[in-house]
């Protein structure tokens, strides 16, 4: 598969900033994959995110979305149609008084014919499991529901990539699960490329690939199992690893599973 987003030696610093925020990022994101990016505050993960649809442009280096250079202003609309963004606070992303109007906002702006808007809105709301709420007022929904409406609003643009910057930070456990289940399903069933920026390690477990950022650089990159197995590195970065991985690590057993059942089987096998 061709990469749909490609970072080529990307450096970034703010004009007056002394510090470099991205220090030479090379990263290829495969179409249809679910990539999680983990890092503590200030690691550069949100800056990385903002480079994916030209909200920020590299100080040096290139970001490519398909064959489009994000620095090419003529391609801006195409780039933003290709990579849809969801942000942390659902209340800042909702613009209309009725759920379905909110979801229709982007296709209306893109000049999509009204019949097609209807279809896109219905399809998007069904994909996030919010179709029954289409006539509701968004401010009366729960955090998880609002965030799913925000995702539907992006889906109605029919992007190829869904990029989310800490979409669950303000949600309760139920809302977090709704959002993560929704984006996982979009990737697995619809082939949507998902880039999830987070600092909750448990949200990365179901991803195809986990990228860890620290001080503007990528310090680990692999399957979640491979990355979490590097317990010392994760601790040094101030990041959590699953309890299962930690126990296997301390027992000196192979770290080949993260779910409690398989992990218990490994320990039981070692005991007998």
């Amino acid at each position: 598969m061709e990469p749909i987003i490609r970072f080529e030696n990307v450096h970034f610093s703010y004009p007056e900033g002394e510090r470099e925020i991205l220090c030479g990022i090379n990263l290829e994101i495969t179409e249809g994959s679910f990539v999680a990016v983990l890092g503590h505050n200030g690691s550069g993960k949100s800056t990385l995110f903002k480079h994916m649809n030209a909200i920020l442009l590299p100080t040096s280096g290139k970001v490519w979305v398909r064959d489009m250079d994000t620095a090419d202003e003529d391609k801006l609309l195409d780039i933003r149609r290709t990579v849809g963004m969801v942000f942390q606070n659902p209340d800042n992303q909702i613009v209309a008084n009725v759920v379905e109007d909110d979801v229709a906002f982007a296709p209306e702006n893109l000049g999509v014919p009204s019949e097609e808007i209807r279809q896109r809105v219905d399809a998007a709301l069904k994909q996030v499991g919010m179709y029954e709420f289409r006539m509701h007022a968004p401010h009366l929904l729960s955090g998880g529901q609002k965030q799913r409406v925000a995702i539907a609003g992006v889906l109605a643009m029919q992007p190829k990539v869904l990029a989310l910057d800490e979409p669950t930070a303000m949600l309760d456990p139920q809302g977090r699960k709704e959002v993560i289940d929704t984006v996982t399903r979009l990737c697995r069933e619809k082939g949507m490329t998902v880039v999830l920026i987070t600092h909750h390690m448990e949200e990365c477990i179901g991803a195809d690939r986990l990228v860890v950022m620290s001080n503007g650089s990528i310090v680990a990159d692999g399957t979640p199992l491979e990355v979490f197995s590097q317990v010392e590195l994760m601790e040094r970065e101030g990041l959590d690893v699953p309890e299962t991985t930690r126990v296997l690590h301390e027992l000196g057993l192979p770290k080949t599973a993260m779910d409690p059942e398989s992990c218990a089987a490994i320990i039981a096998g070692a005991k007998s």
């Binding site: 699953p242 309890e243 126990v247 027992l251 059942e261 218990a264 089987a265 320990i267 039981a268």
Partner: peptide, 30 residues
């Protein structure tokens, strides 16, 4: 997390004792 791993271990026949809810307790019980 330590509790759910302890539950899975008991199911696999490892007789862990006591109430387990922290990493340290789990390691001690093991």
């Amino acid at each position: 997390q330590a509790t759910s791993l302890a539950m899975a271990l008991r199911e696999k026949g490892i007789p862990l004792q006591g109430s387990i809810y922290t990493h340290a307790q789990l390691m001690a019980a093991l």
